[in-house]
Design a protein around this nucleic acid. Structure first.
Lengths: 199, 199
DNA sequence: TATGCCATGTAAGTCGTTACATGATTAG
DNA sequence: CTAATCATGTAACGACTTACATGGCATA
């Protein structure tokens, strides 16, 4: 159900149509959730039927229609309830750690190459999230600006800090992964050397 | 496809039946992958058809049958190929960070309670993984003992270290999450105080 | 003889991926 | 006029969840 809550969370800032939401959820500098448009459009219709959001049709030009969805009172309530209550953690399922568990089955060079790619990926994510986190702290993102319009000015700093901190969390996790991968590289090198000495 | 590779990785240590694999993948002290038996049994039959594993039927008592699966040469090859090559990272999708992104919408006390539960969960995972990591380093787990039987003694330490290190990675990530959650608690407390001062 | 473990299944439904498909509008 | 962008869909498939379902074996 998380996609629904993600959509509610975005629509809480301002009304949007499916296309805008799609750009948001398919965006390259990734956010905390992602989804393709093929999932977003049907979900929006579902949510409208459930009364969580309301669609308003608009016409651009003569024929190009778009449905602009806004969050309803029920949607807000659902979002607040979900955010305020605990949810069971999803089962552990990490394909990369699974792969790493069998690195002893391949030549160290191949494992090292896989690790190198992984580190680069994590670094890229870190860079994107860092930029986003800083933009939030500076209250420079479009969505945050919209969101703050409905909040008392006294709370603006608090809200910006809290949101930025979430991305700091993503960064911390990615950093832990990257650091671990670098240690793995060292471990592989050591072992490789030891292996050669023994041989 | 990761479940298939997880199964191959376990069966590389020794032949097992669906029930044993199920206990492994549904185990409370979680591993790096999990799956219910309703997913495991059909997957095993699929993998047998694909020639990745081979089933041998055994009878306990008079009627109780069980299929003991062993990895085939093709399965080994598939596993090695998969382990040795890079795979695109799955899209970012973290329900807890998503939830945290909207903590400003609920009372700080509720957010704090959600964070508290989260921290406890992470700590529990850390404890389980720590125990598992230490058992691996000491070469005390059943599966590792089986696995090492087919490897040169000179490599035993290396293999144990590599496997244990994967769980150290899971621990590092969980630790990063827990630390982040603790910082979040501090941030919420600060803000709460500031909010009350302002009011 | 009853409880707990061994052992294996099916089925319905949700979530997510990938590919296919269509057409309007705008800016250069 | 043509390419990029706006805008919205469908369909098939695979992965995972949850619930339902059955029966044998061992031991107390």
């Amino acid at each position: 159900m998380s996609l629904q809550h993600a959509l509610l969370g975005v629509l809480e800032a301002r009304p949007m149509n499916g296309y805008e939401l799609t750009r948001f959820f398919e965006a390259a500098p990734r956010w905390v959730w992602s989804a393709p448009h093929s999932q977003i459009y049907p979900t929006l219709r579902q949510m409208e039927q459930a009364g969580l959001i309301e669609g308003q049709q608009e016409i651009r030009g003569t024929k190009l229609r778009r449905m602009v969805y806004s969050i309803t009172e029920r949607g807000l309530e659902e979002l607040r309830t979900w955010v305020g209550s605990g949810h069971a953690a999803p089962p552990v399922r990490d394909a990369f750690f699974l792969q790493a568990l069998f690195f002893d089955m391949v030549e160290p060079e191949r494992a090292a190459s896989v690790l190198g790619t992984y580190i680069a990926e994590q670094e890229k994510l870190i860079a994107e999230w860092r930029a986003h986190s800083e933009a939030l702290l500076a209250k420079e993102t479009d969505l945050l600006k919209e969101r703050l319009k409905n909040r008392p000015v006294a709370e603006h700093d608090r809200i910006a800090k809290l949101k930025a901190h979430v991305f700091a969390g993503q960064i911390a996790v990615a950093q832990a992964r990257a650091d671990w991968a670098r240690e793995s590289l060292r471990l592989l090198a050591e072992d490789g050397a030891a292996g050669r000495e023994d041989a």
